[in-house]
């Protein structure tokens, strides 16, 4: 195994593209090192992106949105007051990944690239309509986060691709987001099921626009568009919430495994979507 720590994303991409064997990108390493330890993966090349200038920066974009470098840790996002105020749901999702120790290392980009349907930050990113800045052999391109996961452990990223940053759009007035997950303990578990909701309200308090991401209810994180449609144009009254819960259930295609059952996940997905929607709306009104 070779370890490389390049100084630009282009160089990183070149190293990855040029390696014929198995490669892994190392950002926080909280998934990659577990894979190495278990012997599941025996990479020939590890590319550490943390020494790339800008990889650990959180910056505002020209359009008022946010750009979060691929190596920014969960703890660093949690300590960024402005980002937290703009996207509290995203930040709370990232902050739920692992322990305090894991927070010191884990990244949103890594959480996405790991390809887990239970990844905490991904439903929140999908609800936020986040974009990944991907540097590949043929240059830099934008890819919607929603399009990246393909299945457990698989992504649409290709050989030589490396995510340089995640971008979040600017927030309109009266916007809010929230992320909730269910775990059997209070910490240290992988989400059994989760929901991220981002919405904005009109002046009268009706939902103008909404997006809902659901975690651990299918092979990838689900963009539950029909569930979002069920609350758009409503004041999140009981009927709208009931319709949303029904649409959430339809969007779910979970499995029975050691972490939960089909029945449980489907039910609790609706519960969490409801709670997250109400929390997001409360934040939008604040």
């Amino acid at each position: 195994m070779r370890y490389e720590a390049p100084s630009s994303f282009e160089e990183a991409s070149g190293l990855l593209a040029g390696e014929t064997g198995v490669t892994r990108i190392l950002a926080g390493g909280t998934d990659v090192l577990v894979q190495l330890r278990s012997g599941l993966v025996e990479p020939d090349l590890i590319v550490d992106i943390k020494r790339i200038p800008g990889a650990k920066d959180i910056t505002r974009t020209d359009d008022g949105g946010w750009r979060i470098g691929a190596a920014v840790s969960g703890a660093e996002m949690g300590e960024h007051a402005e980002l937290k105020a703009a996207w509290p749901g995203i930040v709370e999702a990232v902050e739920l990944i692992g322990s305090t120790q894991v927070q010191g290392r884990c990244t949103m980009a890594g959480n996405l690239c790991n390809g887990s349907p239970a990844a905490d930050s991904v439903p929140a990113m999908i609800a936020a309509d986040a974009i990944a800045e991907v540097v590949g052999p043929s240059g830099t391109r934008d890819v919607y986060v929603e399009e990246i996961p393909l299945g457990p452990g698989r992504t649409r990223l290709e050989k030589g691709d490396v995510i340089a940053a995640i971008r979040l759009p600017a927030r309109p007035e009266r916007a809010g987001d929230a992320y909730l997950r269910f775990i059997p303990r209070t910490e240290m578990d992988i989400a059994v099921v989760s929901a991220g909701v981002s919405l904005c309200l009109d002046a009268s308090g009706k939902v103008l626009d909404a997006r809902i991401g659901l975690g651990a209810v299918g092979p990838t994180v689900v963009n539950a568009a029909a569930a979002a449609d069920a609350i758009i144009g409503t004041t999140l009254d009981d009927a709208a919430i009931a319709a949303m819960i029904e649409a959430v259930a339809t969007a779910c295609s979970p499995i029975d495994d050691k972490r939960g059952t089909v029945k449980f996940r489907t039910k609790v997905a609706g519960v969490l979507a409801k709670r997250a929607a109400l929390k997001a709306a409360e934040r939008a009104k604040a």
Partner: peptide
């Protein structure tokens, strides 16, 4: 593993 064999943590 301790991820899915869930012994109580301090916050529980």
């Amino acid at each position: 593993g301790f991820l899915d064999y869930r012994i109580p943590v301090a916050s529980d």
